[in-house]
Design a binder for these strands. Structure first.
Lengths: 343, 343
DNA sequence: GCGCTTACAGTAAGCGCTTACTATATATCA
DNA sequence: TGATATATAGTAAGCGCTTACTGTAAGCGC
């Protein structure tokens, strides 16, 4: 047995290898020339003692934690797992640890202090969706703390890097499909929540497609679905009660598409035969009573990976990259009217 | 502006409050008596300087990291998110950070050393499923490093605490339902992978139910479904080809249930009218061509919470609790033959 | 052969906290 | 009232690393 009780320290390794602690440090960090023979002796000592450098000591001395943080407000979204996988993969590949906090990052513990995650325990943070309010975001960013946003645009005035998807071109392709392949003319749109980045761009894609095909934009065919099943259902119910005529509904997101389908079926109509419905996100909301959904898939795992890479680059070089916008992919299934074999 | 550039240190706070650093430390950690008036001055200084203690310095001095680690091999299972939520909640409530590693915890980086997660950067670890092999488990546990297993039983000989579910009584209740409510007599069982804890106990529950109802155990009605859709499908196909007669199939888990349903439908039979199918886990594997699945739900989030609590208690008191076994709940839907309204 | 760079390695000063000791004042008790 | 707790606070020694400085010897151009 090599270790009596306490874990080995760098001094133990140094003594065993017959060198100074500085040399051991150099061997481990490979940040200064060390003769091959010396390095070999050091590695042997490390192995023999089963030495693992103390993260705390290392962090204290180097003023780096070797850890990135992930702040998330809602880990239940279908996006979370792939994003996490992407982040974790990139972080580990770069030798960083990943600290997770699944709720607002600033918690008042006792008299007003204590940020759960921040410069004191991470080298930078990934901020997912609305997990940090604008004020804290501005504060941290103002102090020069590396931050990358995911699934959220920076508040006005702050140029914090973020990764996002090609919402506009994705929506455009989707609506193009409805028009070009299915010859639909009256295509309704259920927009997402107010001021929602994604929703804004998807609407732009929708309108661009109409324009390109010389279909006049009809405000009566636009309502708010709020990226929510119930809100979308109600909106579509309302259209149907009013006798609004339409061939298809572009629901803004898959959640809303589900609500639209419910409303259509309630009214005794069929999807896609009577009204086609398409969504966005491809989060696999399949239900027995629903036709497989035509939608747009975003490379979610890649987004996580890119965000982590971007953050780590920011930490290491202090130079942010220009905005990263990942492309989306059209997923044709049955709800648009196309034939499709499930299973 | 209070901070010129570098973040405030405990010395800055001490100076501003007119006390020693020791006193500031005592105020923050509340681990020694400090006069109320003094504490107030200290807190004011902390606020004014926006002070956040350095995790590294704290860890180095106290030999504690304030972090627990989660080692997971597969974060894509439907269990992962609720488990993570449970863990995160419990960790944060206890003031611990959560470090995540989504792949084997021991990685050889360069000449043979470097454990990504371990005593050097965490106070204890949650080991999910097969994320750490027996050898490393034994090594870490042998050194007295706090470990709690999740979704996995300890290797023989090591009494590492773990949390698990009432698999047996859950399976028992499920099969009781099939027999008592639906009067099925020929109930087949698809067992899980070899040597799988959960599978073992589910089979025991299955047999206990048969026994209790005086139904003889028929080995011909047991096959291996491997907790896998394709394996289960093949097993059921085989039964059907052989002309084996059965009223119902207890599929071991929901994944296998899906496979069983596919095989039954392929054979031109209906679920549950011709053969009922029930699963275990309740992971919401709904598909358009499947009846809603009758199954057993395990309190997954609670498992995460309990595991984290258990680990933290172990870290703080060094006294493990006896095995925690969480109870399961029967979820009746349509695939057993019961009437049921979805939506 | 001389001055200069370069490769390699040691010395030692912290990094920002915690905590064992120690010190002082006030309270308590017989 | 002198002795002894008790409450409160300061002193200073590390915790285990990294790294700026230094030192030495070998290599190199001329």
């Amino acid at each position: 047995m090599s270790d009596v009780n306490a874990p080995a320290t760098i001094a133990d390794v140094a003594k065993k290898a017959g060198v100074s602690t500085a040399t051991v440090s150099r061997v481990i960090n490979q940040n200064a020339p060390v003769a091959a023979a010396t390095a070999a002796r050091v590695w042997a000592a490390i192995d023999a003692l089963n030495y693992h450098p103390s993260a705390a000591a290392r962090g204290l001395a180097s003023r780096k934690t070797g850890v990135i943080g992930l702040l998330a407000d809602d880990i239940s979204t279908p996006f979370f797992v792939p994003i996490l996988r992407g982040i974790e993969t990139a972080a580990r590949a770069a030798g960083y640890g990943l600290l997770i906090n699944a709720t607002p990052g600033v918690v008042s513990d006792g008299p007003g202090f204590r940020r759960v995650m921040g410069p004191h325990n991470t080298d930078g943070m990934l901020v997912f969706a609305a997990s940090l309010d604008d004020e804290d975001l501005a504060d941290l960013h103002g102090r020069g703390f590396p931050l990358v946003l995911l699934h959220r645009a920076p508040p006005p005035g702050l140029d914090i890097p973020y990764v996002t998807f090609e919402n506009k071109s994705g929506a455009r392709a989707l609506v193009d499909h409805l028009i070009e392949v299915h010859s639909y003319q009256r295509i309704a749109f259920l927009r997402g929540p107010e001021n929602h980045e994604d929703s804004y761009w998807r609407e732009l894609g929708y309108r661009a497609s109409l324009d390109a095909h010389d279909i006049p934009f009809d405000p009566a065919l636009v309502a708010t679905g709020g990226f929510s099943q119930t809100q979308a259902r109600d909106a579509v119910r309302h259209w149907l009660n009013e006798g609004v005529v339409m061939d298809a509904i572009f629901a803004g997101d898959d959640e809303a598409a589900t609500g639209a389908i419910i409303a259509i079926q309630e009214a005794g109509k069929r999807v896609p035969e009577d009204i086609a419905v398409v969504g966005f996100d491809d989060v696999h909301l399949s239900h027995p009573w629903m036709p497989p959904l035509t939608t747009v898939r975003a490379p979610v795992e890649e987004a996580g990976r890119e965000a982590a890479r971007q953050l780590i680059r920011l930490i290491q070089t202090r130079k942010p990259e220009p905005l990263i916008r990942l492309s989306t992919e059209l997923i044709i299934r049955r709800s648009c009217g196309c034939p499709y074999e499930q299973r």
